[in-house]
Amino acid sequence: MISEKDIMYVADLAKIKLDAAEVKKFTSDLNDIVEYAAMLKEVDVAGVEPMYSPNLDEGTPEREDVVGASLTQSEALAASKYIDRGHFRVPKIIEGQ
């Protein structure tokens, strides 16, 4: 059983602030889903390798590490609303001066 405390813990990890009603609803929803997923335990998976991707069983292809064309700083930052002197401005992180 997933408890409301579990949901609050997970929501904190996922950095989503939930209100009490959402905690209640998601607790109920997740319990339904996880209960339903319990049927997966019936499947014998001994010795079966996980299939993480449909076409990468051979591994991820690699290429030569060469520098190619890329966005300029101003292009990369153009879509942001929080730019200050060429940087992303965020709320203060370190306390004090």
């Binding site: 989503i16 602030k17 959402e22």
Partner: peptide, 19 residues
């Protein structure tokens, strides 16, 4: 930000996936 920016279905799936 994530509370305001995501709809209920998206939030639910992120919470489930994180779990």
């Amino acid at each position: 930000t994530r509370r305001e920016g995501f709809g209920p279905e998206v939030k639910k799936r992120i919470i489930l996936g994180t779990y």
